[in-house]
Simulated assay, not measured.
Amino acid sequence: MKKIDRDGLLLCELQATAFENSIDKMDSSSEIFIRRFMKSNIAKRMDDESILESNLQANDILQLVDEEYGVSHYGTVKYTHNEMYWIGYIYRYFAITYEFTSARVYKIVKPKELRELFLPYHTLDPSQAIERILEAKGLLLDEEAELQRQYEIFRRIRMGSK
Rank of each mutant, 00 (worst) to 15 (best):
M1I: 12
K3H: 01
R6Y: 10
L9W: 06
L11N: 00
E13C: 10
A16H: 01
A16E: 08
A16R: 08
N21Q: 09
N21I: 05
N21A: 04
D27A: 11
I32N: 15
I34C: 13
I34R: 11
F37S: 11
M38S: 13
K39A: 05
K39D: 06
K39S: 08
K39Y: 12
N41R: 15
I42G: 08
I42H: 06
R45C: 06
M46D: 02
E49Y: 07
S50V: 04
S50T: 11
L52K: 10
E53A: 09
E53R: 14
L56D: 08
Q57H: 10
N59F: 02
L62Y: 04
L62T: 06
D66I: 06
E67W: 08
E68K: 10
Y69F: 15
Y69D: 01
G70K: 09
S72W: 00
Y74S: 14
G75I: 02
T80V: 01
H81F: 08
H81Y: 11
N82W: 00
N82V: 04
N82D: 01
W86M: 04
I87R: 07
G88Y: 05
G88A: 03
Y89S: 01
Y89D: 03
Y89W: 07
R92P: 00
I96R: 04
T101A: 05
A103W: 01
Y106T: 08
E113R: 08
L114T: 02
L114S: 02
L114I: 00
E116M: 05
E116H: 09
L119A: 12
P120D: 01
P120C: 03
Y121K: 11
L124S: 01
Q128E: 09
E131Q: 14
R132Y: 13
A136R: 15
G138W: 08
L139Y: 12
L139R: 14
D142F: 14
E143D: 15
E146K: 14
L147R: 15
Y151V: 12
I153Q: 13
F154Y: 03
R155K: 15
R156G: 09
R156Y: 00
I157K: 15
R158G: 02
R158K: 12
G160S: 13
G160T: 05
G160R: 13
S161Q: 13
K162D: 10
